[in-house]
């Protein structure tokens, strides 16, 4: 743990922090998704960047209220799917090849089998595998990249220190503004959060 008062508190000295603790941020607690939504819109309009909402269940429309940008995930998933299709085709083309093929680039002799008199290079027979690998690659990429983009798995988070915050997984709705936000000033931000009409505002140490 940090033992010195950080730059943030040094330059923004309205609220002295206890020695030996670094401020992670401020949390504001709300009772209903509607209150949270209205507050989130104000946070968005106030221009904060490093802040988040914490809810016990998915709240429709919160993305818009928070002003979240479109995710790039679909493009990666599409790319992964297209990769799957290509890989499946190449895999089958290589394994079915009789001899050197110019497109192969290397000398390959696969395991060609004569199946019901079909040519070794039979696209219709390849398509089921191409279809399956497309889905496999997209699904795996989707899940893994979703974890990566969200910074998961994350076993520890400073907000876990707050007893109040425990209700975020039960019946309360929270907005957390982090101290690293360029617009963050401990006192001003606290006052701002109070204008959002929360049940409570609390400082959380890092």
């Amino acid at each position: 743990m940090a033992t010195t008062v950080t730059n943030i508190s040094d330059t923004k000295t309205e609220q002295p922090m206890p020695q030996g603790a670094k401020l992670y941020g401020l949390i504001a607690e709300f009772e209903t998704p509607g209150d949270l939504m209205a507050a989130a819109e104000k946070c968005r309009d106030a221009g904060y960047k490093y802040w988040d909402c914490h809810t016990p269940f998915p709240v429709h429309g919160l993305d818009g209220a928070m002003g979240l940008k479109r995710t790039w995930l679909p493009w990666f998933v599409f790319g992964a799917g297209a990769t799957g299709t290509t890989v499946a085709f190449l895999l089958q083309a290589f394994t079915n090849s009789w001899d050197l093929h110019i497109w192969a680039g290397v000398w390959v002799t696969g395991y060609p089998f004569l199946i019901s008199g079909k040519p070794a290079m039979s696209l219709p027979a390849f398509i089921p595998v191409m279809f399956e690998l497309t889905i496999l690659f997209s699904a795996l990429a989707c899940v893994k990249l979703m974890f990566l983009f969200n910074g998961l798995p994350q076993l520890y988070h400073p907000l876990f220190k707050s007893n109040r915050f425990r209700r975020a997984s039960n019946d309360r709705f929270f907005i957390a503004i982090e101290a690293r936000d360029p617009k963050f000033l401990p006192k001003a931000t606290e006052q701002f959060l109070r204008t959002l009409d929360p049940v409570a505002v609390e400082a959380v140490e890092d």
Binding site: S116, K118, P124, A125, I127, P128
Partner: peptide
């Protein structure tokens, strides 16, 4: 459409 085609083709 493809399933129908492939079974008959095969």
């Amino acid at each position: 459409g493809f399933s129908q085609y492939m079974l008959i083709w095969y």
